[in-house]
């Protein structure tokens, strides 16, 4: 091993210092279909770049937690968060702001789904027959797959999900929740309604095996959140320009990546109920 070789490799550790800070970077995790993120959101980056007049790049992440970390570190300045992750991120980065939400996110909801072998039927409330079943949430940081379902479970049964069900799991993803309830690995699950509807339309769901048994009341979900210091770095009025660009995104091809019908204005206050819920079930500290 020559010395030169070692030096070369070592100098790599300094790479982040060389990274360009002038690029506006965003991240997004869609609620379904995480494949080819780079290709799909590359187009969104191109659109934003044209609208904002700065170089825009997309960085794919694997989880809400990773998105929050990147947002906190200022590795990304704009993020498409879920309801809960947005609240968490804005708590960690002072002055950050919710700019826009999907049209559907104004009245989002979750479905409770069950394997048909359980004999559970659709109803107006969560029935006591759920007790003692196996149950899966989606990912641990998800609003529609974790936070709201857990809130309504606690409200209905007055106890933690672990006490209601024989076993509580986290499938990690809405598509997996559907697949696992359909295969019987879990008897009951909670899932993002949009993902369910999409998969149903695509014929991926066998309704003889799994069906919806309850729908939650509506709540606000996904939103674009921007860091408070973007005006400083990218020029006065940049934040406003970002909001405009998002609200003006009309190309169905771009919107399909999220997938949303369109984007509408949103504010931090819209997510007050989410924050309160998260505190109520202990996911957020007071």
């Amino acid at each position: 091993m020559s010395l030169i070789r070692r030096l070369l490799a070592l100098s790599l550790l300094l790479l982040p210092a060389l990274a360009h800070a002038e690029t506006f970077v965003f991240t997004a995790i869609p609620d379904a279909d995480e494949s080819r993120l780079q290709q799909r959101f590359g187009k969104v980056a191109d659109y934003l770049s044209a609208q904002l007049g700065v170089e825009v790049k997309y960085i794919p992440v694997k989880s809400y937690a990773a998105a929050i970390t990147a947002f906190r570190n200022n590795q990304v300045q704009l993020a498409w968060f879920g309801g809960l992750s947005g609240v968490q991120a804005r708590r960690l980065v002072p002055d950050s702001e919710a700019l826009a939400q999907g049209y559907e996110d104004q009245f989002f909801k979750s479905y409770f789904i069950a394997h048909t072998s359980t004999g559970l039927e659709a109803a107006d409330s969560l029935s006591d027959a759920l007790k003692g079943k196996t149950f899966t949430f989606g990912s641990k940081g998800s609003t529609s797959g974790r936070l709201m379902p857990e809130f309504y479970l606690r409200e209905q049964f007055g106890m933690a999900p672990e006490a209601v069900f024989e076993r509580v799991g986290f499938s990690g993803d809405h598509s997996r929740t559907i697949a696992q309830v359909q295969s019987g690995a879990y008897q009951v699950g909670a899932v993002n309604y949009a993902v369910w509807e999409t998969e149903l339309a695509e014929g991926k769901i066998d309704t003889s095996k799994v069906k919806v048994i309850w729908t939650t009341p509506t709540y606000p979900d996904y939103q674009w959140t921007v860091r408070g210091d973007v005006d400083q770095h990218f020029g006065e009025g940049f934040k406003v320009k970002v909001r405009e660009a998002l609200l003006n995104m009309k190309d169905p091809d771009l919107l399909a990546s999220f997938p949303r019908e369109s984007f509408v204005p949103a504010s931090n206050d819209d997510y007050g109920p989410i924050e309160a819920t998260a505190k109520a079930i202990g996911l957020l500290d007071e």
Partner: peptide, 22 residues
């Protein structure tokens, strides 16, 4: 040595990273 050089070239570009004080 060739592989190492290639590896350095292949490493993903670090995007928009600016916070060192964290």
């Amino acid at each position: 040595p060739l592989y190492l050089a290639l590896s350095i070239w292949l490493l993903p570009e670090t995007l928009g990273f600016s916070n060192g004080g964290y």
